[in-house]
Amino acid sequence: MVPLSWYIILSSVMFSIGVFGFLTRRNLLIIFISIELMLNSVNISFVAFSHYLQSMRGQIMVFFVITVAAAEAAIGLAILIAYYKNNPTIRVDEINLLKG
C-alpha cells in the first residue's frame, strides 16, 4: 500500500517545479503551461485525499479546478493573442506597462 504522504510529496515537488517555471521563464506560453502544471499537481493531492478519506469531495473539487483551468486557459490565451496583435512579442520582460 502506498502511503498518503508519498502522493503529497509528489504533488509538492511538481507544484514547486511549476512555481520555478512560472518565476523564471521568459516565454509567456510556458508561463501559462507552468500554471497548468501547478493546478494539476494540486489535483493530485485532491484525488489522493479523496481516496484516503473515502470522500467524494476531493474529486468534485478537481472538476471545478478543471473547469476553472479551462476558462483560465481560454481567457489567458485570448489575452495573449490580443496582446500579440498589438505588440508582436510574448516575452514577459518586454511587457512592462505596469512600470511606475
Binding site: I8, F15, S16, V19, F20, T24, R25, R26
Partner: peptide
C-alpha cells in the same frame, strides 16, 4: 533569446525552499 530571465537563481531557490517546506 535565453530561456530564463535574470532572476532565475532566486526563482530556483524559492522553488527548492517551497518544495522542502511542503515535503
Amino acid at each position: 533569446m535565453p530561456k530564463f530571465n535574470s532572476q532565475w537563481p532566486v526563482g530556483l531557490g524559492i522553488g527548492i525552499i517551497l518544495a522542502g517546506f511542503l515535503v
